Simulated scan of single mutants.
Amino acid sequence: MNASYATLIGPVELAQRLHSPDWVVFDCRFDLCNTDFGLHAYLGQHIPGAFFLDLETDLSAPRTGVNGRHPLPDPAKLAARLEACGVSHHTQVVAYDDACGMFAARLWWLLRWLGHNRVAVLDGGLQAWSSAGLPLDSAQPEAQPATYALAPRANRVDADFVLGHLGQPQILLIDARSPDRFRGENEMLDPVGGHIPGAINRFFRDNLQPDGRFKQASVLREEFGALLGNHPPQQVVHHCGSGVTACVNVLAMESAGLSGSLLYAGSWSEWCADPRRPVATGPA
């Protein structure tokens, strides 16, 4: 079997394999302030052969008001959508966006949740692809439907787990939001500002170099090592505003060889929907 990619792939490496029959590429572009942006951008130009997946309709379940802004999708429905695009257990999947990997990493994490290992994020996204002089087109791909059997992993936790472990030293909560939102300032997306008590802050963009590509694995390992202290990766619970940008921190840790961290998918938007859950403000 050809070499597989489980975290990141560069644009040149992707271009060399773009037309391989066992590779499927997904365009995950999205804009939280303009939910039609991603599809319109995709229809205009995309990496040749790429399919489009929408954060809200494909990669999330409907909101109820108490389950966060981007609840996890139904696994069977997501698997069916992937099957329709030709994804089987043997497929190498590559996800990309134009937003520092924040939406592509959501698909990366979801596939791992379903039990799929051969999934990677395009390092540097569409900007890196274009900077390398690689082509774009607007043609709609045709898929050969595949069969996908679910094998879900226990790589996530829920609000009750987090609440039940507050203040316990064996769990480290890492919040991926910007520092001002973590402190409870400038909250524009959720009705309550602040963070989960005991959490520390690792802004997801801190994993990136100025050119938008991920830092070297050795650098990420050193930086996360300083945050984790004596905690093994399996005791780390990532979260953010709605379970999207936290996936970038999971991806960064995995690319650094720090495997096995968990995601609280409901994240702050779910946490703060219940006034009985405690809230902290200010720095960690």
Score class of each variant (00 low, 15 high):
residue 65 G to W: 01
residue 281 T to L: 12
residue 106 R to C: 07
residue 125 G to N: 04
residue 248 V to R: 06
residue 64 T to F: 14
residue 63 R to Y: 02
residue 283 P to S: 07
residue 47 I to P: 03
residue 103 F to Q: 07
residue 246 A to T: 04
residue 218 S to A: 15
residue 174 I to V: 14
residue 206 D to K: 10
residue 65 G to A: 07
residue 222 E to N: 11
residue 35 T to G: 05
residue 200 I to H: 03
residue 42 Y to K: 03
residue 219 V to K: 00
residue 86 G to R: 01
residue 31 D to V: 05
residue 44 G to I: 12
residue 185 E to T: 14
residue 151 A to Q: 13
residue 81 R to T: 13
residue 216 Q to I: 01
residue 220 L to R: 05
residue 53 L to Y: 03
residue 189 L to A: 15
residue 167 G to E: 00
residue 130 S to N: 09
residue 234 Q to Y: 08
residue 99 A to D: 09
residue 81 R to I: 08
residue 257 G to T: 03
residue 173 L to V: 07
residue 175 D to G: 05
residue 191 P to E: 15
residue 71 P to A: 09
residue 284 A to G: 11
residue 26 F to T: 05
residue 13 E to S: 13
residue 22 D to K: 05
residue 182 F to G: 04
residue 50 A to P: 02
residue 183 R to I: 11
residue 161 F to H: 09
residue 28 C to I: 05
residue 32 L to E: 06
residue 97 D to V: 00
residue 125 G to K: 05
residue 140 Q to P: 00
residue 16 Q to W: 10
residue 66 V to L: 09
residue 17 R to M: 11
residue 162 V to K: 00
residue 173 L to E: 03
residue 28 C to F: 08
residue 76 A to R: 14
residue 4 S to M: 13
residue 135 P to C: 14
residue 253 M to P: 11
residue 158 D to P: 03
residue 274 D to P: 08
residue 7 T to F: 06
residue 61 A to Q: 11
residue 57 T to I: 02
residue 214 F to V: 10
residue 43 L to A: 10
residue 76 A to H: 14
residue 270 E to F: 04
residue 48 P to T: 10
residue 246 A to F: 01
residue 172 L to Q: 03
